[in-house]
Design a protein around this nucleic acid. Structure first.
Lengths: 200, 200, 200, 200
DNA sequence: CATGAATGAGGATTCATTCAT
DNA sequence: GATGAATGAATCCTCATTCAT
């Protein structure tokens, strides 16, 4: 007797709830600081139920990293590296990225947690690293376009891409969650400078 | 019976050794991942000896963060915000900072560990935050000098300072330990751009 | 709505299947090593179904011991203690017993498991013990017959019976499952010696 | 500062105490039925202390099997297979073996526990099996001597050895701990019969 | 009746901390 | 001061059992 659609939906939601709470806890308390007990309490399920949805703590952690990564991937890669008007595209892209990062909060702490301890979380780290490289490659294309079009100063594109991503991450890391929107808006032109936009 | 000078020296060295190994372990394995036993083994002292020098694990952790911070503080604040030739001072400063950060490695992971989890390590975090503010304030002075002298574009100085520090941290975080010196040299001009240097 | 005959048959078979697999698992893995999940998987039924047929794990365990015991009881007691030709009867009996024990394998491990831990499985142990006594009593009759007839040396019959049963059990226990038939045949005359058969 | 002799002695005794209690518990309750908590309580030490002396439960179990085995090995192998007077040697040996087995009690249940579940305790089982083979080989020598000397009937020696050991084990297994000495004495002549002693 | 999600008690193990030597 | 044995709280995980569907 298979589960009813209703049941399946409830289970999906329960799994999602556990995962969301796990992300928050992992990012605030780290891997060891987060206990299954805490995750269960935060999710409003019993201790054992966490294990119904995730085989073990490691797997929960892995899922907490990787599943949201997929969502962010498309959002962050949503720019056209071959756009003719590089200036406009760049501004649009940075604005978008800043917005995304400003809302990332908890999750980014988690990512940083992994990067900072990649020795420990190798498998998971690799997935992040792969996205990181993908992201930079697409940025390189855009930067090269801009340099070819004479809109950007000549700089090694990969280094610019690295610096740009690092800036986004560093700022998000150094900025308390409560920062107002204006702060993030102010950062936009500063970040754009990294690309070496020629001022007319 | 007072300890001989010899004794005191040996004890100082022992404490220092334990602290150094603790920094490495904490940064690689995180707070919970690091055990006193591991610290003792790495330092070549017995288990109980760690407690002779540090009251408990928390205190050891705190010391592992705060004590090196003092060293880095003076190194990082070693620039003159009122220098007449802002351009030269800026270049010197950035070069110096990049050098420091490129060598920071293990320790910075630790700092990031704390920042990412400031909820957990409040007291320790405050000390880092205080340095962070001090650093930015001094940068603001320099940036303002540059803007007043017409060498830098007008931008909100505090945001530039924030972005600059974030960039340093973000890059160090995203760069594997083995990166060669040339990489870091290449970052220098890109970082300088953040300050809005007018190109002639 | 009463169940159809068909239904009842299917259920009986299902119960039997579960019990058989439980016997195998209990004997290989012990009581705690055997989980309901494993039993369910081995029986091709779902987890909860096991509880449809057996109230709880203890009951399943008890059934796994006791139900086959009934089968073996009649097989093992199938000899005539008052037979005139004790020699023939003895040989027939031992041959039969050896055959039964050689095929017992898994199940006997289980019995031994209980005997070895009678403190834990008291109720179940008593059932085994009762059969043990019944078996020995009937053996005593046969032995007494033989001694009275002057075919067997005088020895305390109950001790001979005890030794005989112990031998059967000990051999089965010490012999790997794969032993060939010849081995078991070779044991027959050796076992018979226990009874003190006068050699002519 | 090394531990004092006094300390070392106390520790040795403590380890021995834990091991002894573990043997009793393992044999009464089986592997899973025995918990570290119970072992600790029975030994009068705290929970964590058990782990000071034994790395984990598996190791404790292994030690509980193997360490006494060494003691019993020499006791059980203490007979001369080349003795001229096989009859005397045989009687002496059996008497000795019966005595040992009668006192073995708890420990033998443990051995049986392993043998009955050799699938699960492979490494440990191998050590027992090795002793088993060693014991039978030495018995074979004695039996062969007896047959060569015309004192024993011709029977396949290895099978006799197997049956003899099985008898010892089976009896010990089927006999409650409280059995009086007389019972064991009575078993001696019955056991000797297995060897096929020619009656004069 | 069959299924399998939910629950939480119980078990092995780790580890910070204490303290006697 | 140095050592490491003793302790037990806290953690992850398993699993029997319940019960809604």
């Amino acid at each position: 007797m298979p589960l009813s659609e209703q049941q399946i939906l409830i289970m999906k939601q329960k799994r999602e709830k556990i995962l969301q709470e796990a992300i928050v806890l992992f990012s605030r308390l780290g891997y060891e600081g987060t206990t299954i007990k805490k995750v269960a309490a935060a999710s409003g399920v019993s201790f054992g139920t966490v294990f119904t949805y995730f085989e073990n703590k490691d797997q929960l952690f892995h899922a907490a990293i990787v599943e949201p990564l997929e969502e962010y991937r498309s959002e962050l890669l949503d720019f056209n590296p071959n756009e003719t008007d590089v200036f406009v595209e760049l501004e649009k892209m940075v604005t978008n990225h800043i917005k995304i990062f400003s809302e990332l909060s908890e999750y980014l702490s988690l990512i940083v947690h992994i990067i900072g301890q990649h020795h420990r979380f190798e498998t998971t780290f690799k997935e992040i690293d792969q996205f990181y490289n993908e992201f930079r490659e697409k940025l390189v294309e855009l930067i090269t376009s801009g340099q070819d079009a004479g809109i950007l100063f000549e700089q090694e594109p990969i280094h610019v891409a690295t610096a740009y991503f690092s800036l986004l991450m560093g700022i998000r890391l150094n900025t308390p969650d409560g920062a107002d929107d204006q702060f993030w808006v102010n950062i936009i032109p500063i970040a754009i400078q990294l690309f070496g936009l020629k001022r007319s």
